[in-house]
């Protein structure tokens, strides 16, 4: 909501202007990070500065250039459909902060 509007209005200016409180709040929700007020201020500054720096990529003409996800020319890496793993319960649960009846305990999820 507010975020979208802010983002629109930010176009044309520097990214430092776009990264406002609402953006930091929004990204915090996406990244599941809760920042203190100080951290938020710092994040706003850092992110704005980094993005302005990254914006120098706009000097480059990349039209017609395929985005390169992988550097290796490898395709079609498969495994056969054969069961190779046995009962992994103990190893899976080895580091569980909280377990019950061979399951991980999590705060109640609401549907």
């Amino acid at each position: 909501m507010g975020y979208g509007a802010d983002r629109e209005s930010g176009k044309g200016g520097t990214m430092a202007n776009v990264i406002d409180d609402a953006t930091i709040e929004y990204v915090g929700i996406l990244a599941k990070l809760e920042l203190s007020d100080e951290e938020k201020e710092a994040a706003k500054k850092d992110m704005g500065r980094m993005l302005d720096y990254i914006d120098q990529l706009n000097e480059l003409d990349t039209s017609g250039v395929e985005p390169m996800s992988h550097v290796l020319p490898v395709r079609n890496v498969f495994r056969e459909d054969v069961v190779t793993n046995g009962d992994g319960r103990e190893e899976t649960l080895l580091n569980a902060p909280e377990r019950k009846e061979d399951m991980f305990v999590v705060p109640k999820t609401f549907e």
Binding site: M47, L51, L60, V65, P67, M68
Partner: peptide
């Protein structure tokens, strides 16, 4: 942020093109 809606193309894809 660079992956978030509205910025993926401008940042992430741009970076992958630069990588190329």
């Amino acid at each position: 942020f660079v992956l978030s809606s509205g910025y993926y193309d401008a940042y992430y894809l741009k970076a992958l093109r630069t990588k190329a």
